[in-house]
């Protein structure tokens, strides 16, 4: 039984996406979105797009998560859905 890497990454990415929109606490949702961005970065490195993976790891998983955390801290953590 030899499961290729891309199937594992795809399952993880879909799970992280579903978790990010179902968690009620907004800070937890933002952290799960950071994990989603990191798995997406690994997937692009596995597809051979190393420059895109570098950009995703620094820009989207770094600056994007920081922007979202700052916005959540400025507003509120609670959400109804």
């Amino acid at each position: 039984m030899n499961i290729p890497f891309d199937i594992i990454f795809q399952i993880f990415v879909v799970m992280c996406a579903i978790a990010a929109i179902t968690v009620r606490d907004l800070l937890s949702a933002v952290m799960v979105l950071g994990a989603y961005s990191f798995f997406m970065c690994l997937m692009w490195a596995q597809l051979g797009a190393v420059d895109v993976a570098f950009t995703e790891a620094s820009v989207s998983a770094g600056i994007g998560t920081i922007l979202l955390i700052a916005a959540v801290l400025k507003t509120t953590r609670r959400s109804k859905d």
Partner: peptide
């Protein structure tokens, strides 16, 4: 209905 959740959904769509 939460605005931050909508923005997270937009990020997932773009990715």
């Amino acid at each position: 209905s939460n605005l931050i959740k909508k923005i997270i959904g937009m990020n997932i769509f773009q990715t």
